[in-house]
Design a protein around this nucleic acid. Structure first.
Lengths: 232, 232
DNA sequence: TGTACATCAGTGAACGCGCGTTCACTGATGTAC
DNA sequence: TGTACATCAGTGAACGCGCGTTCACTGATGTAC
């Protein structure tokens, strides 16, 4: 279960959302504001953060904020842009074909689910804030759907060559909907603060196991071992 | 696909959330305010409604509102209480054992999914508002989880007698998680304003079909007919 | 059946609050010469 | 290398806004006699 690199790291490419700063000083302020906003998001949620508070906690000022961002929406879009850039890097690493040449199909699905679960748990506050905004703003929503589509595309590229191992009559559709089921379960995990089964909260490892099971069961991919070891 | 009875209908039992009105006139005001709030919820979402606007649209006044409800939160809790009472009535009708004595197991699952999908589509605005509040308030969240648990309990009561038809090694767990998967997909449907597959939006009937398929596939229940008729 | 009156219901202006945003200003940076 | 100065970066008080809520008041209801 990998750790995310510190949020403070500057991105490989500059953010498109904000117009570029002209001095090194202002760039540092920009990332301090972004990081502070993300910290406050985790502490208080989207509704609990205000620009005066972001500015204060970042050691900046309200005016300083508006010198970097056109308005509050631009800050949030920048936060989302950075988040999806980080997710994309992870997706690229995961979906590298050379990594899976010798692996069983079920192993690939298992690894993808483990990655999804790890990211969801680590970044749940960011994801929750994103879901709020996505529910209200079509553009934000479509950004999320585009990412999910890219995940499904990558999974298809990895798994469709192994269609003999997929009993679902339409393997491409199975991969698409399997991805959606996994995302839906993670979305529920974030919104309801955890996932319960058989009367108790599931650990991260159990969550991985159950989600993998559901996806494999739906697509009709043979599991690696029998699944009898589970308890009520 | 049944229609919900008009929202204006008074509930069978009085709402516990609000302290009882003393005159018929004030009871009418109470339900006018509740109905107006629900209409505004559908039009503008939770963030878009205010007490002055609810009062104005209901032909009441701000003070009139506060004579009925202690505060805004009490209104929202009353709305949720009424919603869950309506859902419970539908659940009771659906889970009546006598209705299913001669039915195939897959038919029961199919009917339950159809009911879930129909309610989700019809009441999506209410559900969305509820999800917002659930994400912020533990009490609200638990009310939702209690209802989901009751659904799972009812499904277990209906299906566990037929465990011979369920190939999942732990049928009780399969029913529990199957319910959660269905709820998670509906939650996603509400938040992302629809469900897409194979590049296009799914109709309500297709959504029923796919969700049923996923649940049956996971639990290992034999389908009623072959599922080859689907198109990319 | 008539009426006095306590209680319930409803009115809408006004208040305080915290938000996002603006703006006149000061200070820091870096470059041209 | 030194310095003048245009530009960039940052400051924080102040503004307008819409919200939830309060409150002094008027009107409607229904019951006791």
């Amino acid at each position: 279960m990998s750790r995310l690199r510190a949020v403070t790291a500057a991105p490989a490419a500059p953010l498109e959302t904000v117009s570029g700063p002209k001095q090194a000083r202002s760039e540092r302020t920009l990332y301090r504001l972004l990081d502070t906003a993300e910290t406050l998001l985790a502490e208080k949620g989207l509704a609990g953060i205000s620009i005066p508070e972001i500015a204060r906690r970042a050691g900046s000022s309200v005016g300083g904020f508006y010198a970097r961002f056109q308005d509050k929406d631009e800050l949030l879009r920048a936060l989302e842009e950075r988040f999806f850039a980080q997710l994309s890097a992870r997706l690229d690493a995961l979906a590298d074909e050379r990594r899976w040449a010798r692996a069983a199909t079920a192993t690939i699905v298992e690894a993808a689910v483990a990655e999804l679960v790890a990211v969801t748990v680590a970044r749940r506050h960011m994801i929750r804030a994103f879901l709020y905004r996505a529910a209200q703003d079509r553009g934000v929503r479509e950004e999320g759907l585009r990412f999910r589509t890219r995940v499904a595309d990558r999974m298809r590229a990895l798994l469709l060559g192994r269609r003999a191992e997929i009993t679902h009559p339409d393997p491409a559709l199975a991969i698409d909907l399997g991805t959606q089921v996994a995302f839906a379960l993670m979305q529920q995990h974030v919104l309801l603060e955890g996932t319960r089964a058989g009367g108790r909260a599931l650990s991260e490892a159990e969550l991985c196991r159950e989600v993998t099971d559901i996806v494999l069961g739906y697509a009709g991919i043979r599991r690696r071992a029998r699944r009898g070891r589970r308890t009520r």
